[in-house]
Design a protein around this nucleic acid. Structure first.
Lengths: 194, 194
DNA sequence: GTCTATAGCCCGATAGAC
DNA sequence: GTCTATCGGGCTATAGAC
């Protein structure tokens, strides 16, 4: 039994979770280390012992967030046969996260535009993104989707889904996405189906 | 003839144009007033005589940018009869701006998430946004669009168009949007047509 | 109205005790 | 490993000459 001190990993979890909330709520640059210290109850020194600097903390959160999405997406793809099913699984996961953990979704959607990532953000090379492209390309080949540029079709499908997610996060769509899911998925599918 | 001094309005134009470039390139918080001074050739004092502070400068640019879009959109709507035409005009305007003045498009799309606007951003009450909703609602009534929630249909159409714009701005789509416009507009239309 | 120079502030990061 | 106290830097905004 450890009695003396708190598990460092637990502290790191607190830091990450506090920082994520604050970043999403106020934006990366409007959050100071002292604020994270206050919110997480972990001291400056400890934070800097886990992360080299503030940007790396944000980057770590970003990475974890994307990784989680990726894993859940790929897990759900197992057993999906048709292109329709595979794309529906993507949409449903997005909608589910928006409702159950909007912070995660917001981090993925809004924290990507150069706030702390200095390099041009290679969103195109993100795993889930490439996976969607592959699914669409295969769907076109198999004749389940309309002929055309597979990139444009991928953009069209995800555009419908992600914009719905965005507007739901902003409060423009007032119903939970679960209620609108069927209609949205039908729309997205109609945009590219044969 | 004014010979002596430079027209203050001209200076303000320089400031606004330099600031817009810098904000888009580096993000609001990564741009300092001294940088704007250097880039625009207008002094700190002069800048603060036009704008109360940095946030207001950004807000002014945002307002002008949206206003310009709105005016051009409404001008082009004149003479459009069918729902298809009206929506196409929106898409074409978006695509045109992305190619001719990507900075403007980027400012509209990416500068809206709480960087300097402290209040929750009322994107839903933006004029062009409401206009699109009205067009879609009317289209459904007239039977030109599938039955369903008009908000979801508006989201679906604009989702396809705006995500294409976003990915083009990020360099993921390498062809000029003019080349892909027909296909994208067809996809967006297919998502909601009857 | 416009300039330069700088006040005053707050932040990120560190040093040094424990 | 972790804490508190603090430093140096860079920022926004202003004061005061012109």
């Amino acid at each position: 039994m450890k009695k003396r001190t708190i598990d460092p990993e637990q502290k790191m979890v607190w830091v990450v979770s506090s920082a994520r909330s604050l970043f999403v709520a106020r934006g990366y640059h409007n959050v100071s280390i002292p604020q994270i210290v206050k919110e997480s109850g972990v001291s400056t020194g400890a934070i800097y012992s886990y992360f080299a600097n503030k940007a790396e903390l944000a980057r770590y959160i970003h990475e974890q967030t994307l990784l989680d999405f990726q894993e859940r997406f790929e897990a759900r793809l197992d057993g999906c046969m048709s292109t329709f099913e595979k794309l529906r699984v993507f949409a449903e996961l997005v909608f589910e996260i928006v409702e159950t953990d909007p912070e995660q979704m917001e981090y993925m959607m809004f924290m990507k535009h150069g706030e702390f990532l200095l390099e041009a953000y290679p969103i195109c090379s993100t795993r889930p993104f490439r996976k969607i492209q592959a699914i669409v390309a295969e769907g076109i080949e198999k004749g389940e989707l309309r002929q055309g540029d597979y990139l444009l079709s991928a953009v069209s499908y995800t555009g419908v889904i992600l914009r719905a997610a965005e507007l739901r996060l902003q409060g423009v769509l007032q119903e939970p996405l679960a209620k609108s899911a069927d209609e949205l998925i039908a729309n997205a599918w109609a945009a590219i189906k044969v």
